[in-house]
Design a protein around this nucleic acid. Structure first.
Length: 596
RNA sequence: GGGGGCGUAGUUCAGCUGGUUAGAACGCCUGCCUGUCACGCAGGAGGUCGAGGGUUCGAGUCCCUUCGCUCCCGCCA
C-alpha cells in the first residue's frame, strides 16, 4: 500500500495540476457515458471527480465500479475546462485523469444511500429511519455530514484540552467500576465474580473522585469522561453520555465563571460565532422561575412572565375570583405584535382548549389589542380599571396578544407559561437564528421537598451559602446553595458548585437529608474520612459535551454527534445489545435471572 | 409507569366511505450514450402491507392482541 505518497481527495488544489497523485477512497457516484466514464471519489477529506477514458487499459475494470467500492487510483491532476467546472465541489475546478485503477474491495448495495450529492447546492434532507441508520452505523458514518460532526467534535475537544492545560489543569482518569450510591439516578450495576453477591456501579459522574483528587492535592483536574444513568431516555438524553468534568482548589465562583466564559468563547469562535458577551449575565433561580417559568431561561427573546394577581384582586370575573379566593395566582405574557398571526379561533380552540390542557393547565384567558381596545370572548367581564391596569402592566400596544393563566398551584402556573413561552416563540418564529444567549443561573435552593423528606437540589456535596446549624425543615428549604448552571438558549449545558470541604458541615447536610450515622458510614464513609485530612476549599463544574457540540454544530439531536448512540429504548441496533448471556457467565457471577 | 402518533418495495412515501392484478420517486439490474456531476434515454426486477387473531362474500383499509419505532408527561442528586 503506497500510503507514503497518498493525497486526499478533498485537499487537492490547483497548485498540484500536472502532478501524479495516489488516491484511496470509496466510489461516491458513477456516471457512465458509454465511452467516457466519471466517478466521484470520496475519502474523509472530501470528494474529487475521476475521469476514465475508453482507451485506458483498465477501462473495462472501471465499468465494473459500483457505489461504495473501495479503490486505489493513481492519476494526473488536471484543470477542468471552464464550462465543465462544478461550483458545488471544493475540488470542482480540478479532476483526476486515471492512470491506474485497483479495486481494493467490492461492496454490496447499501441499505440506504451513502452519497449526499450535497455539493449540488443545498444539502438534501436525509430522511432514513434512525434505527436503520444505527443498524448500519458504519455506513451512516461514511456520509460526509456525519464525518463532519465527528471531525468537529474532535476539534472542539482538542480546544477544551488545550485550554484547560494552559490553565494548569491536569487530566486524570477515574474508575469506571466504582461504588453504587443511592443518590440521584438509577445506577448501571456490574456484578462482581470475585465478590459473590456484590456489585460495582458505573459512575453517574466522577463527583466523589474529583473531590478526592482535590484532597489529594492535584489542585486542578479535568477529564473528558463517560457518565452513566439508567433512566428513561429523551431526545437529548443517552444512557451513557460525555462530560467535560473539572474541579479546582482554592477558588470561588468567579474563577469558574471566567474560566468557562473563556472556554465557551473559544469553542464558539471555532465555529465562527463571535457575538457572545464578554461576561455572561447572571440570573438568580428565583428570578428565572418568575420571569421565564423554568431554571433554564432562553434569553434570545423577551416575552417575560408578568404577575397580574393584584390587578384582579376585586374582579367580578368568576373564574379569576374563585382562584384568587383560594390563594391562587394569575400570570400572563405579552405575545408582542402577534395579533395578526393568532386568530381568535387559534387562541381559543388550538391554544386555550388544546395546548394549555396538554401542558397541565385548566384554561387560558386571552385578549388582543386592536383599535386601542382589548378584544376577546370574555373582555366584557372586566372593569375599565382592570383593563387599563392590564394594558399598562403588560406594556401592551396595538397588535399585541395578551394571555393569562390562573391557578391555585403557583408552580403549575410557572411550568405552563414557561413551556408555552418557548413553544409559541418557535411557532411565531420570533427566535433569531444563529444567535446564542448564554447566562449563569445562580442562587439555587439547597434543598427541595422529596418523597422521603428533604432532597438535595444539586447534590449533597454542595456548599450552602450560609450556616445551616440548627435550622428546622422550613428554614432549610429557604437556604440557597453555592451552585450554578451554565445555560445557553434555554438548554442547560453545564452545572456545578462550590463543594463542602468541612466534614462537620458535610455531616450537617447528610443529617438534614435524613441519613443516619450508620447510613453515612456505609455510603460515604470513605469520603467523610477523606474530608478530615486537610481538604482544601474547592469547586467545579461539568459540561455536557454531547449537547454542547450538538448546539455548536446546529444538529437536530445529540445522536448526530455520537458515533455509536443507543436508541430511545437504550438499545443498540448495531450490536444488538443488551443481550442475554450464557448460564455459565451467570453462574460465574452468582446471578440467577428471575422469571420475566 | 401513564398518554398520543407511526409501521406498505432496499430507502422515502401515496393508497379516499372495505371492492379487479397494491402505486410513485429515488436506489438496484440490463442495454444505449465521449464532458457529466441529482447525467440522460429505453427496458426490467423487486412487496408474507410489522406479527397473530377476529368481523366480512371480500381487509393494506374496520376491531382486538402483540412487537418495534417515535413524541409528551413521570423520571433524570
Amino acid at each position: 500500500m503506497n500510503w507514503q505518497q497518498r493525497a486526499y481527495c478533498g485537499e487537492l488544489d490547483s497548485a498540484q495540476v500536472g502532478q501524479t497523485v495516489q488516491l484511496f477512497g470509496w466510489v461516491d457516484a458513477v456516471r457512465d457515458h458509454g465511452h467516457l466514464l466519471f466517478i466521484h471519489l470520496r475519502d474523509v477529506s472530501g470528494i474529487v471527480q475521476v475521469v476514465f477514458h475508453p482507451e485506458a487499459p483498465f477501462y473495462a475494470q472501471a465499468r465494473q465500479l459500483r457505489s461504495e467500492f473501495v479503490v486505489s487510483i493513481v492519476g494526473e491532476v488536471k484543470t477542468r475546462a471552464a464550462d465543465t467546472v462544478n461550483p458545488h465541489l471544493n475540488t470542482g475546478t480540478l479532476e483526476i485523469e486515471a492512470k491506474s485503477l485497483e479495486i481494493l474491495n467490492q461492496a454490496q448495495t447499501p441499505p440506504f444511500e451513502v452519497s449526499e450529492k450535497g455539493f449540488s447546492g443545498e444539502v438534501l434532507p436525509f430522511k432514513v429511519d434512525e434505527d436503520t441508520r444505527l443498524t448500519y452505523r458504519y455506513l451512516d458514518l461514511r456520509r460526509p455530514s456525519m464525518q463532519r460532526h465527528l471531525v468537529e467534535r474532535s476539534a472542539l475537544l482538542k480546544i477544551v484540552r488545550d485550554y484547560l492545560s494552559e490553565a494548569r489543569f491536569i487530566e486524570v482518569e477515574t474508575p469506571v467500576l466504582t461504588k453504587s450510591t443511592p443518590e440521584g439516578a438509577r445506577d448501571y450495576l456490574v456484578p462482581s465474580r470475585v465478590h459473590a453477591g456484590h456489585f460495582y456501579a458505573l459512575p453517574q459522574s466522577p463527583q466523589l473522585f474529583k473531590q478526592l483528587l482535590m484532597v489529594g492535592g492535584l489542585d486542578r483536574y479535568f477529564q473528558i469522561v463517560k457518565c452513566f444513568r439508567d433512566e428513561d431516555l429523551r431526545p437529548n438524553r443517552q444512557p451513557e453520555f460525555t462530560q467535560v468534568d473539572l474541579e479546582a482548589s482554592f477558588i470561588d465562583e468567579t474563577f469558574i465563571y471566567s474560566l468557562l466564559e473563556g472556554l465557551i468563547h473559544r469553542l464558539f469562535a471555532h465555529t465562527g460565532v463571535t457575538h457572545l458577551p464578554a461576561t455572561f449575565p447572571h440570573i438568580t433561580y428565583d428570578e428565572s422561575m418568575s420571569k421565564y417559568g423554568n431554571d433554564r431561561p432562553d434569553l434570545r427573546f423577551g416575552w417575560e412572565l408578568v404577575e397580574v394577581t393584584d390587578v384582579f384582586k376585586d374582579t367580578s370575573y368568576k373564574i379569576f375570583r374563585m382562584i384568587l379566593e383560594t390563594g391562587g395566582m394569575i400570570k400572563g405574557m405579552n405575545l408582542k405584535g402577534q395579533a395578526a398571526k393568532l386568530s381568535k379561533n387559534i387562541l381559543q380552540e388550538e391554544l386555550a382548549k388544546g395546548l394549555i390542557p396538554k401542558l397541565g393547565g385548566k384554561g387560558m384567558t386571552w385578549m388582543k389589542v386592536e383599535n386601542g381596545q382589548l378584544d376577546s370572548n370574555i373582555v366584557q367581564f372586566f372593569s375599565e380599571a382592570e383593563k387599563a391596569a392590564l394594558l399598562s402592566r403588560m406594556g401592551a400596544e396595538e397588535g399585541d396578544v395578551l394571555i393569562f393563566v390562573a391557578d391555585q398551584d403557583r408552580a403549575l402556573v410557572h411550568s405552563i407559561l414557561g413551556q408555552f413561552r418557548v413553544i409559541m416563540a418557535q411557532r411565531c418564529e420570533i427566535i433569531p437564528e444563529n444567535t446564542f444567549a448564554p447566562c449563569w443561573v445562580v442562587d439555587f435552593p439547597l434543598f427541595e421537598n422529596s418523597a422521603h423528606g428533604l432532597g438535595a437540589v444539586h447534590h449533597p456535596f454542595t456548599q450552602p451559602q450560609g450556616d445551616i446549624t440548627g435550622l428546622d425543615r422550613e428554614a432549610l428549604l429557604t437556604q440557597k446553595a453555592r451552585a450554578y448552571d451554565l445555560v445557553i438558549n434555554g438548554e442547560e449545558v453545564g452545572g456545578g458548585s462550590i463543594r463542602i470541604h468541612s466534614w462537620t458541615q458535610q455531616e450537617q447536610i447528610f443529617q438534614a437529608l435524613g441519613y443516619t450515622q450508620a447510613q453515612i458510614e456505609e455510603r460515604f464513609g470513605f469520603f467523610v474520612r477523606a474530608l478530615k485530612y486537610g481538604t482544601p476549599p474547592h469547586g467545579g463544574l461539568a459540561l455536557g459535551v454531547d449537547r454542547l457540540v450538538g448546539m455548536l454544530l446546529g444538529v437536530a439531536s445529540i445522536r448526530e454527534v455520537i458515533a455509536f448512540p443507543k436508541n430511545r429504548m437504550a438499545y443498540c441496533p448495531l450490536t444488538e445489545s443488551p443481550s442475554p448471556v450464557s448460564s455459565e457467565q451467570l453462574n460465574d457471577l452468582h446471578i440467577r435471572v428471575t422469571e420475566l
